[in-house]
């Protein structure tokens, strides 16, 4: 096993275990910390897939932005009552069964497509220099979706302020 393979499997196990801890912890603060660990592992997997721009965006936006927002809201909301209540709802067995059916479908399709999805990945130079290629694509081919995304962020910002404002 090369270093490249070992990094992927270690990161995959860390990401999966901390994802399971995210949904099983009683305390939302602990869930948030484990979610940071998952997002960091996913960022490193992006780096390992030679998507260094996406890894940086993942760390800056997710860990630096969204998770800080989550922690702020956890501290604004009084959770002492919620931590002592039952963490799972009444439909948990049906929901768990449905999710396992979903996992079985995923397993089936990925297993069927494993030969097709095993062709060696394209040459390493194909998505390099990464940031430059993304910039060109974003500002030439995808300029309209980019502008729409900026509008979406504006609407979300106004909406969030309006929702959270004291009346």
């Amino acid at each position: 096993m090369t270093f490249y393979e070992v990094t992927f499997y270690v990161l995959a196990v860390v990401a999966l275990l901390s994802a399971i801890l995210v949904i099983t912890c009683r305390n939302p603060v602990h869930s948030a910390i484990f979610l940071v660990l998952t997002l960091l592992s996913v960022a490193l997997i992006f780096l390992q897939l030679q998507a260094e721009f996406m890894a940086a965006v993942q760390i800056i936006v997710y860990i630096g932005g969204i998770m800080v927002l989550f922690l702020f809201v956890i501290m604004l909301v009084n959770l002492d009552v919620a931590v002592r209540q039952a963490p799972y709802n009444r439909q948990r067995w049906i929901a768990g069964f449905a999710a396992l059916v979903l996992l079985a479908e995923f397993t089936l399709f990925i297993y069927q497509g494993r030969d097709w999805a095993k062709l060696p990945p394209a040459a390493a130079e194909a998505v390099q220099p990464n940031t430059e290629l993304i910039g060109r694509a974003l500002f030439q081919n995808y300029i309209l979706p980019f502008e729409v995304a900026s509008l979406l962020l504006l609407v979300a910002m106004v909406g969030a302020v309006l929702m959270a404002k004291q009346r």
Binding site: A12, A15, V22, S31, V73, Q85, Q91, R92, G96, A99
Partner: peptide
């Protein structure tokens, strides 16, 4: 496969937890 497993964990979390933050 990793993505499918993470997706399923997320789906289980959405469907079974009571706390909206989680």
């Amino acid at each position: 496969a990793l993505a499918a497993a993470l997706f399923t964990v997320g789906v289980i979390g959405v469907l079974t937890r009571r706390n909206i933050i989680i």
